[in-house]
Design a binder for these strands. Structure first.
Lengths: 107, 107
DNA sequence: CTCCAGTGCTACGATAATCGAAGCATAGTG
DNA sequence: CACTATGCTTCGATTATCGTAGCACTGGAG
C-alpha cells in the first residue's frame, strides 16, 4: 500500500495538499525535515538532533519520507532530495514569521 | 502553563520555529487551520469539515490554537486571526507545490 | 410556559501511536 | 580477534487519539 494510494489519515480526500498535511502532521516529521536542512545526517545523528526521538519512530518517518521522495539515503547518512529542499525552502518564510509570532505572544 | 512556557514536545529547545513545528505537528492542527481558510466555521461544521474528527481532540486543538492566537471565536463560530491568516498565506505556495509533488509521485 | 432543534463541549472506555531502553547484526579498524 | 560505530528491530509501558453518548445552554415555535 503506497503513500498515495493509502487513504489519508483522518480524511478520505485524495487531494494532494491533504496528503501532504497528513504526512507532515505526523509527529516528528516536520522536525526531521527541518534538521536535515543543512548537511546530511546519519541515523543516530538525526536521532540526536531530534532530542533523542525513539529509533522506531525515526525509522518509520524515514520510510515515509523516502516513499514521499523528500528524503533519500546519501553517502553520509540521509539527505533531503531536490523536492525536499524545495519544500523546506517554502518553510523559510514560515520560520521567519515564527520569530515575530513568538515575540508577540510573549509581549 | 502557557504555550510558550511549556517545553516543546520532544525537544527542549525554546526556539520559535520549534514551538511552531511542535504545534503544527499535532494531529489535525494543520488541517483545522486549513479548513478555516475561508469563512468562519462553528464547532460542528469544523468537525464535519475535518471528516468527523473527535470533538475532544477538536476542542483541545482549538484551545491550543486560541492560545497561540492563530484562531479566535467569531460571530459565526471560529475564525483565523490576522496572524493565523498570515501563517496560512505562507502555506499557499506549499499547496501549489503539493500538486506537482503528487503528480510526480504517481508518474 | 413547554418543546424541540442546534450548538459547544465533556466523559469515558477502546484503539492506535509513540516512547524508552535494550539489544541484534553488520561493517570497518586495529 | 576485540572494539567501535552504525542502522535498525523488539517489546512492554505510556500517551494521544478515537468514537459514541450525552450534558448544558440557547433561541425560536407553539
Amino acid at each position: 500500500m503506497t503513500l498515495i494510494d493509502r487513504r489519508v489519515r483522518g480524511s478520505r480526500s485524495g487531494r494532494p495538499v491533504m496528503m501532504l498535511l497528513d504526512l507532515l502532521g505526523r509527529r516528528w516529521t516536520l522536525r526531521v525535515l527541518w534538521e536535515l536542512r543543512g548537511e546530511p545526517l546519519n541515523f543516530r545523528a538525526l536521532q540526536a538532533a531530534c532530542s533523542g526521538m525513539s529509533p522506531s519512530v525515526l525509522n518509520q518517518r524515514l520510510a515515509e519520507l523516502r516513499e514521499a521522495r523528500l528524503v533519500e539515503p546519501a553517502d553520509a547518512g540521509y539527505a533531503l532530495t531536490v523536492r525536499g529542499r524545495e519544500l523546506l525552502a517554502l518553510f523559510e518564510p514560515v520560520s521567519r514569521w515564527a520569530e515575530t509570532w513568538a515575540r508577540d505572544l510573549r509581549g
